[in-house]
């Protein structure tokens, strides 16, 4: 057990402190897909979660993303989660904060009583509470400062659980362009990618998680690897009104993530997460860039 734990923690010791410029995963509803439905005590029908994620993004923009989440277990098989996010971003433009998105997802367990392989499915929507065009003093801000991608998205996925392993596949499909108006040619700096009327392509995700239970089941460690593939190049409308494809904004991101959950009561727990990317897309205009993220949350069932 101890040997397994050392193997799991090693990548974070090696890579976790490097200040690499890379894409993490701030889009909580997508990257944490399936997590809200893992209640510590399934006899409780309600679960609230309050937390926040701190990260360092593109061009040293620091981002804190608080969230509040409510999960209702309607039956042994069916549950619904609603999550509200916000963001405080700070960088060379200044500080900008706003609410972000509402995620509503439903989870259905196909065979909750199975002994070996358990399947569940997930379907949800991301509803933006801003258009992705927050400004400071009438100056348009690039995407790392935006609290929301500004798009309505559909999220769907499947999860398979075998003993201590969980495997997720999911897709996030944007339904509209956002209303961001950042053009580097009109900006005081050209360090950020132009994202005027940004069109974002879909993502697919694969995550594998291994659970290690310690300390009389009080502490659970969940090292996991998260693979995100961006299915095409994003685009924006340039200063001359022409839509321009952003070369090399497609491709693969691989994140390593370690979650530690500590039970502080029968129905409550504290959870921390540490994540960093190992493989990144060459160009990442969507503002989801993080060198690393650290998350802390409190969960209470009732």
């Amino acid at each position: 057990m101890l040997k397994n734990f050392k193997i799991a923690i090693f990548p974070f010791m090696v890579f976790g402190i490097q200040q690499i410029s890379a894409q993490g995963c701030s889009d909580a509803g997508f990257c944490s897909v399936g997590n809200p439905f893992k209640a510590a005590n399934t006899e409780k029908k309600n679960l609230i979660e309050i937390g926040g994620v701190y990260g360092i993004g593109e061009e040293d923009v620091t981002i804190f993303s608080p969230y509040a989440s409510y999960t209702r277990l309607f039956t042994d098989k069916f549950a619904v989660n609603a999550r509200l996010t916000g963001t405080v971003a700070n960088g060379s433009f200044g500080t900008r904060s706003n609410v972000g998105d509402v995620f509503v997802t439903g989870n259905y367990k196909f065979n909750p009583d199975a002994n070996n392989l358990k399947w569940s499915g997930l379907l949800g929507v991301k509803i933006p509470l801003t258009s992705g065009n927050d400004k400071i003093n009438n100056v348009s801000l690039p995407m790392p400062y935006q609290s929301s991608l500004g798009t309505f998205d559909i999220i769907g996925g499947l999860e398979a659980s075998v003993k201590k392993w969980d495997f997720n596949i999911a897709a996030q499909i944007p339904l509209n362009d956002n209303k961001n108006s950042y053009l580097s040619s009109l900006s005081p700096t050209d360090k950020f990618d132009s994202t005027n009327l940004f069109h974002r392509k879909s993502d697919v995700l694969f995550r594998s998680t291994y659970s290690i239970v310690l300390l009389n089941e009080k502490l659970t460690l969940k090292p996991n690897a998260l693979f995100i593939y961006h299915l095409g190049n994003d685009s924006y409308v340039n200063q001359f009104g022409n839509r321009v494809e952003i070369a090399n904004s497609d491709g693969l991101t691989i994140n390593g993530n370690l979650i530690a959950n500590y039970k502080i009561g029968d129905n409550s727990s504290i959870e921390t997460s540490l994540a960093t990317p190992f493989v990144v897309r060459e160009v990442r205009p969507d503002g989801l860039t993080r060198a690393f993220t650290f998350g802390l949350s409190f969960k209470q069932g009732f």
Binding site: S92, F93, R96, N98, V99, I136, N137, P188
Partner: peptide
């Protein structure tokens, strides 16, 4: 929580 800070970019 919406808050617009000071513009620090010249």
């Amino acid at each position: 929580c919406e808050k617009e800070g000071e513009l620090t970019q010249k």
